[in-house]
Design a protein around this nucleic acid. Structure first.
Lengths: 207, 207
DNA sequence: CTATGTGAATTTATTCACAGCA
DNA sequence: TGCTGTGAATAAATTCACATAG
């Protein structure tokens, strides 16, 4: 199946596998079998093999997958190689937590700029990043920042999204609990924490 | 199809519909058609009708769906009626942001307790909630808290999960970037922000 | 005439089972 | 012998098209 289109569901799982492979690599393992990776991530081994089969032969029968080689290749598919600079808009409670979060690095992301509308925040530094006036969003293009993170109140989300798009951003991670309308060349992923929480009780035993 | 099992994918979408319906209700609308709801949320109208058809007749042909009635019913299916108390473990950057977040209320959630391990935080109040020693996690059962939110460093996540389960928690929202092993009567939903971000570049145009 | 509800058709994803390679 | 890679079988979800109800 080497030359097939990779299914969306597989793309969704690739970062999961990447996490597992990076973890295994940190432990010094050169190879990992689909079974071991499956145990680590609590998924099915045949699902893993099928997913990997969509983009080539990386495993050695009897041995497993070459960890480093596979990491490099998954990063390449997801276009994580080369790194990405992101602009954070909205340095409130959530925005501040995102600035402090150290988990973006492993996937090659860096929050390279932060913006807010509150005058008393502008000019301050948080976690090595200086907070700028939202007016300066237009400068993103020339600064090589192609990715935006929206952490502003719901009412401002659509407007900020439009400004990000005007500035040349083509990918948006949206933490506001609203649908955002953008040209279809721009990809938006919305994370709505309360909504994820909302489907938890359905799966919980009575009580 | 009234008596069928509701597909998991439908359950995943119900909170999305709920958001749209609540929004529409706030605007004072008594009814909404699948087409209008679809436009609001950027999904397909036939998907909405199919999803709703799994749990009964709520629409009136020529008119649409009764907003309030449908809201009540979706809440009932998701078991959001009656409300849920949650315990937050880990009041760091992310934990603090979660305490400050005001979006849980609409789905009937309340962060009723917060725990940390750092002595200087214990006893302090943040957003009306007093921070307690993690040692006191065992008291959750008798306090009627059945839901846990893990916002601690990765290395501590598994241990905290086990303590939550011992205390009687049956649902966990996990913000640590690791798989958590729990008895299968307990449902875990993991939100890994960096992992969601990681599939953004794949869908972005070259650059 | 408008908008629902749903069988049927289609597409997509998962699971299996095993041939074949190191 | 151990583990990959993949066709084939199964299952699930999406999309369509239209009969039917208000």
């Amino acid at each position: 199946m080497r030359y097939h289109k990779i299914p969306d569901e597989t793309i969704r799982r690739l970062p999961v596998y990447l996490r597992g492979l990076l973890f295994s690599s940190e432990k010094g393992r050169k190879n990992i079998s689909s079974l071991d990776l499956a145990k680590l991530l609590a998924v099915n081994p045949w699902q893993i093999r099928k997913d990997f089969s969509y983009f080539g032969d990386f495993g050695t029968p009897g041995v497993g997958y070459d960890t480093e080689k596979l990491i490099r290749h998954i990063k390449k598919i997801l276009r994580l190689d080369g790194g990405h600079k992101a602009a954070l808009v909205g340095v409130g409670n959530l925005g501040g937590a995102l600035l402090a979060y150290d988990g973006f690095g492993v996937f090659g992301f860096e929050i390279a700029a932060a913006f807010d509308i509150a005058p008393h925040k502008i000019g301050q530094k948080m976690h090595e990043v200086e907070i700028e006036d939202v007016e300066r969003l237009a400068t993103l293009g020339e600064r090589g920042i192609g990715l935006g993170i929206i952490a502003v109140p719901r009412a401002a989300a659509q407007e900020i999204a439009e400004e990000l798009v005007s500035a040349g951003v083509t990918g948006i991670l949206n933490f506001s609990p609203v649908h955002i309308d953008v040209p279809k060349k721009v990809k938006v992923i919305t994370i709505d924490i309360a909504m994820d929480l909302a489907r938890l009780p359905y799966y919980m035993p009575a009580g």
